[in-house]
């Protein structure tokens, strides 16, 4: 394993990364340009806008929603989103009676194809510790207060299985187009710490 250098501070992570990248490049094991391309893809192409399209389609197309809840991986792939860290997806639906929240208590598993890379708070200890024991107080920190009568379900993501919350369609959106609806679907609402935005 990586030697922890007990008692001494670790070298600056920026230096550790440069050391690794330079050695691996010299050995011909990696191509720095491929790394550039991957980083750019995740900065510009893969993010919560993808998940928002899935949600908006489910809001306007009952047949799609049925497929999404029955086999999320396949239904999400219909829209072109699949791959690394999204190989097995489950979509959980919010209703007036049930609110879902996703977390990864053991690490930081997250559905990359639909939500992109996770925010720092999702990967940090406080959210991971508290989401399972006090989800309502966690949601309150995001400005979300649910009625006591709403059941809260917390889903602990694993390396193999990633969840996505299907938020409730906000009231007053009956005449909106799919594209307009997608703009109401935030990353946080698909993690379940908030609801979708009001129009």
């Amino acid at each position: 394993m990586a030697k922890p250098h007990a008692g001494t501070p670790e070298p600056d992570p920026a230096i550790r990364v440069r050391a690794l990248e330079s050695i691996l490049t010299e050995k011909g094991l990696i191509d720095p340009k491929a790394l550039d391309a991957l980083v750019e893809t995740f900065e510009t192409k893969i993010g919560p806008r993808n998940g928002a399209k899935v949600v908006a389609k489910a809001w306007v197309d009952a047949e799609y929603k049925k497929r999404l809840l029955a086999d999320a991986t396949a239904a999400i792939k219909e829209l072109g989103f699949s791959g690394l860290q999204g190989e097995d997806m489950v979509v959980v639906e919010n209703t007036p009676d049930v609110h879902n929240l996703i977390v990864c208590t053991l690490c930081s598993c997250y559905p990359w194809p639909t939500l992109g890379l996770p925010p720092v708070w999702y990967k940090a200890a406080p959210f991971r510790a508290r989401a399972v024991s006090e989800p309502r107080s966690v949601m309150k920190e995001f400005g979300t207060e649910l009625p006591e009568t709403t059941e809260v379900r917390v889903w602990d993501t694993t390396a193999e299985l990633r969840y996505l919350v299907l938020p409730e369609r906000p009231p007053g959106t009956e005449k909106m187009t799919e594209e307009q609806l997608a703009a109401l679907v935030t990353r946080d609402s698909m993690i379940g710490v908030t609801k979708a935005k009001a129009p």
Partner: peptide
């Protein structure tokens, strides 16, 4: 402690994080 979500968080905070992600 509290969660303290960052508003308008960038995908990466530091250049070295981009390289680590690529690796």
């Amino acid at each position: 402690g509290p969660i303290n979500p960052e508003q308008n968080e960038p995908v990466f905070h530091e250049d070295w994080e981009k390289r680590a992600f690529g690796l």
